[in-house]
Write a protein that binds this DNA or RNA. Structure first.
Lengths: 159, 159
DNA sequence: GAACAGACGCAACTCGATTGCACAAGAATT
DNA sequence: AATTCTTGTGCAATCGAGTTGCGTCTGTTC
């Protein structure tokens, strides 16, 4: 595997330890680029699902809109990130933790559309499908109001 | 209530019985228009969730694109229809049956994106939310392949 | 450090959905 | 049946998230 040689080469630089993000990317065998590291670090730092807009704002500057889209797409294909459809027709992305692999739940705020992951949901649901249908997974989304929107005046359409 | 008088007036016409759609619309107290009747009848006839495109094609002709959007929006606000976000960034609509009021599940095909309702899903899930969060409902979506896509070559991006 | 594949930046584009405004149609009143 | 008020409709323009094509740059290998 070619990752090994470049990893040892890189880890001997003055900068010292590789970030968790860089390590994850390097493990895929694909190129380790500025864009991928930046976006992944943003996702890891955020405790919730982020929109493309939020991510673009967080990396602030050096990355093109389209590049962010492509990096997110790549992260999703590599199963490092998780793509969540929302009620506002906007994709949101989170790091895909290994534990919650396929079966975990999301919470989406009906006011500000924000999404967070709910890790400790059993999700033992096995709905019966019509004949001929095949299930590959069950997505559970809790609708409601988040901490910020439950008390004060709701802030609508946050992106 | 103004609906009562007009209803009795209307039900005495030669046409005889009012359609179920017309009855539902009249019951809201709002105006009974051609557009609302047509769209609602299409939704009632379909056994699955329809996109705006499919509905527009089904009413075939007399209704403007925008009007269909507005009718669907109105039906959703009146809780007669149900608006479902899909993985292809396209809204889908179904009649909101009274039994399945808030808690029922959907199935979405990962190949053709088609959505159907799964009525007999218990949905006893009560996920624990972080402090300060308020839940108003749980949406369950089963991902998989529909009857048409499970055997033959998958037909992608059906709209 | 040369060569190559893959990633990036830029601009143009797609397409579902929304908005503003003038006009038409439904419903109550006379 | 005519009038008036309210509300829905049609048309055109617009929005905005996401995508695509293409030339250039950069990470990686040898």
């Amino acid at each position: 595997m070619r990752a090994a040689s470049s990893e040892s080469r890189r880890s001997s630089t003055a900068a010292g330890a590789m970030s968790a993000a860089e390590q994850l990317i390097r493990a895929t065998g694909a190129r380790v680029t500025q864009g991928r590291i930046l976006v992944l670090e943003v996702l890891q730092a955020a405790g919730r699902a982020l929109t493309h807009h939020e991510i673009e704002a967080a990396v602030a500057g050096p990355l093109d809109r389209v590049t962010v889209y492509r990096v997110l797409d790549w992260l999703t294909r590599e199963q490092i990130a998780h793509k969540i459809p929302g009620d506002d027709r906007v994709w949101r992305f989170t790091i895909a933790g290994q534990k919650q692999a396929h079966h975990h739940a999301h919470f989406q705020c009906t006011d500000c559309s924000q999404v967070i992951c709910l890790d400790d949901v059993p999700n033992t649901l096995r709905p019966r499908l019509p004949a001929g249908y095949r299930s590959v997974g069950v997505e559970v989304t809790v609708k409601g109001q988040c901490k910020s929107c439950v008390r004060p005046a709701p802030r609508r359409s946050r992106r």
